[in-house]
């Protein structure tokens, strides 16, 4: 192998490249067929009038112009932003808090980790109906438990003010995946840093602020971005539990896209809505990365 010199090596390299693309072939085909092409197709449809049964008809920017005057577009966008702020805040606080707690080195901690993780794996249909039942205004157990500490019964998902927060609170039972990723981050913090901090006389709070937080900041960013994108795409809960109500209080953006596309069959308008959504998420993610330069700390020895 060494005696063949450079021609042999270059043919070896070419063979390795061929094998590389052989192994990547399904992935690359998938990117082209199931991501890139649909993305472009939907961009084209967003400039057309398309109701599935008849071929798409070019209408230029009309779908986008219509959006500006569409009250439901603005309502669903605002609802989605409000819900996202609430549910991302809940997610980050409870997932990080949960991970810190579940990082404790006590016996049997593993059982508690599993218990905290389990609810996040329930089928969304099951958990939607469980919480619909728990928050049922007349016979629900939530009102019963609150009545024990003297709180008036609420109408929860049927209350215009409480509907969004109730959905966001349900997110507490879905923090399991976030906890796992935070735990992985916490366990990656070298013990020696804590020892050094202790020698310098840092108490638990200071250790958390000056060792833990900077060290897990890349994981914080990852969870934050995933949580924002996930919350922005909230659909199942609203479709199953509230159907967008009461009124339009839980008419979220993706639910509005879904209704236009699969109930009204306005594929052109729905595609335009989807593309605006795409751009909003893109801008949000970009801003997140830009802002993260100020607070995310990367180890120097990144490979």
């Amino acid at each position: 192998m060494t005696t063949t010199g450079s021609p042999g090596r270059s043919s070896l390299r070419r063979r390795e490249a061929l094998w590389g693309y052989f192994f990547l072939a399904p992935f690359i085909a998938g990117v082209l067929i199931w991501q890139a092409f649909p993305l472009l197709l939907s961009l084209y449809h967003s400039f057309t009038d398309y109701e599935v049964l008849t071929p798409p008809k070019w209408v230029g920017l009309r779908n986008y112009e219509r959006m500006i005057g569409d009250q439901l577009f603005w309502t669903s966008l605002a609802n989605t932003i409000i819900y996202t702020v609430m549910s991302v805040a809940i997610f980050m606080v409870f997932a990080l808090g949960g991970a810190l707690l579940l990082n404790a080195k006590v016996r049997g901690i593993r059982i508690f980790r599993v218990v905290t993780y389990l609810p996040s794996q329930l089928p969304i249909v099951a958990s939607a109906f469980i919480f619909l039942w728990i928050f049922e205004p007349n016979f629900g157990v939530a009102n019963y438990l609150l009545s024990l500490i003297g709180i008036e019964p609420q109408r929860w998902l049927f209350d215009p003010v409480l509907a969004k927060p109730t959905l966001a609170i349900m997110g507490i039972w879905g923090i399991g995946t976030g906890i796992i990723i935070f735990l992985a981050g916490l366990q990656g913090v070298p013990e020696s840093l804590y020892d050094a901090a202790k020698v310098d006389g840092a108490n638990a709070t200071r250790q958390f602020l000056h060792v833990t937080l900077p060290m897990i900041s890349p994981v914080l960013l990852f969870n934050l971005i995933i949580a924002i994108i996930g919350s922005f795409q909230v659909f199942d809960l609203a479709y199953l539990m509230t159907k967008g109500g009461p009124g339009t209080e839980t008419l979220f953006y993706v639910l509005y896209i879904f209704r236009n596309a699969f109930e009204l069959f306005k594929m052109g308008y729905a595609s335009a809505l989807a593309w605006v959504f795409f751009l909003v998420v893109l801008v949000l993610t970009f801003l997140n990365f830009r802002l993260s330069r100020r607070w995310v700390h990367y180890e120097v020895d990144v490979r």
């Binding site: 390299r13 990117v31 199931w34 449809h45």
Partner: peptide, 29 residues
């Protein structure tokens, strides 16, 4: 494996992590 274009495709893979699936739901249908 080492081959030209590897890092480009891996970059695309990372970008896909953040692509909202909703965008491709309608055209895929």
């Amino acid at each position: 494996l080492r081959f030209p274009g590897r890092d480009l495709w891996f970059g695309i893979c990372l970008a896909l992590l953040m692509l909202p699936f909703v965008v491709t739901v309608i055209p895929r249908f």
